[in-house]
C-alpha cells in the first residue's frame, strides 16, 4: 500500500512541472497582467480614460504572448477607454484590426461579440459626434449604418441563445442607433450629449475624418 502512496508522491512534482510549463505559463503571466487590468478598470470607472488606456496596454504587454484571449480582451478594454476618451474612430480602427480573420484557433464567440459590441458603440458615438458637427449625411451615414447593422446582428444572435442576458442591452443600443439615424439635427442638439460624444467633440472628430478622407 505504502508503495502506491510513495509512487503518487514522487509523480506529483512531475505533473506540476508539466502543468507549469504548459498552461501554468499563462497563469503565471496573467498574475502579473490582471492587477494592471484592474488598475485600468478603476481608472475607467473614475473617468480617467487616458490613464485607463495606459494601464490596459501595460497589462497587454505583461500577458503571455500566446494568451490570445486575455490579450484580445485587453485590446477591447483599451479600445473602449479610447472611445470614452473622445477618439471613437481610432477605437473602431483598433477593434477592426482585432476582428480581422486570422490563422490558428478562432476567438471565443463571447469575446467576438464583445469586440463587435464595442465597435458598434464606437461607431455610434462617432456618428453622434459627426451629426452634431456636420449636417451632411455623407459625414455620418456610414458610421450610423455600421452601428445599426452590428447591433441588429448581435441582437438577433443573442435572442437565439438560451440565456438572452444581453438581448436588452443590444435591443436598446439598436433602438438608439435607429433614433440617431432618423433624428433631425435640431432634435439631436436639444438632447443631452453623451459623455463619450462630448469628449469626441472636444477632440474635433469631424475635422479628423475630413483630414483622413483627404489623405
Amino acid at each position: 500500500m505504502r508503495k502506491y502512496a510513495l509512487l503518487a508522491w514522487c509523480l506529483a512534482p512531475l505533473a506540476v512541472i508539466l502543468f507549469h510549463f504548459t498552461t501554468g505559463q499563462r497563469l503565471w503571466f496573467a498574475e502579473k497582467s490582471v492587477p494592471l487590468r484592474l488598475l485600468g478598470e478603476k481608472a475607467e470607472l473614475a473617468g480617467n480614460y487616458k490613464k485607463a488606456v495606459e494601464h490596459y496596454l501595460s497589462a497587454e504587454s505583461a500577458a503571455h504572448p500566446k494568451d490570445l484571449v486575455l490579450r484580445t480582451r485587453l485590446r477591447i478594454d483599451a479600445a473602449r477607454a479610447l472611445m470614452l476618451d473622445g477618439s471613437p474612430l481610432e477605437a473602431a480602427e483598433q477593434i477592426d484590426l482585432l476582428l480581422e480573420p486570422r490563422r490558428g484557433r478562432p476567438l471565443p464567440t463571447t469575446l467576438v461579440a464583445e469586440a463587435r459590441s464595442t465597435l458598434a458603440l464606437a461607431l455610434y458615438y462617432a456618428a453622434y459626434t459627426l451629426r452634431l458637427e456636420s449636417s451632411s449625411p455623407d459625414m455620418w451615414k456610414s458610421e450610423a449604418d455600421g452601428a445599426y447593422q452590428i447591433f441588429r446582428d448581435l441582437y438577433q444572435s443573442e435572442i437565439r441563445t438560451e440565456q438572452k442576458t444581453l438581448s436588452v442591452f443590444y435591443a436598446r443600443n439598436l433602438e438608439a442607433s435607429v433614433r440617431l439615424a432618423r433624428a433631425r439635427k435640431g432634435e439631436l442638439a436639444s438632447l443631452p450629449v453623451p459623455e463619450a460624444a462630448r469628449a469626441a467633440l472636444e477632440r474635433g472628430v469631424a475635422s479628423k475624418k475630413r483630414a483622413a478622407a483627404s489623405e
Binding site: 497563469l27 496573467a30 498574475e31 490582471v34
Partner: peptide
C-alpha cells in the same frame, strides 16, 4: 426598450470583467 426618462439612448456596460487572477504563485 429605452426607459422614458433615460438621459441617453445608448448604453455601454461597465468594465465587464472586474475579476481576479488565479493566485497561481
Amino acid at each position: 426598450v429605452i426607459p422614458p426618462g433615460a438621459r441617453h439612448a445608448a448604453v455601454y456596460t461597465d468594465p465587464p470583467y472586474q475579476g481576479r487572477a488565479v493566485p497561481y504563485k
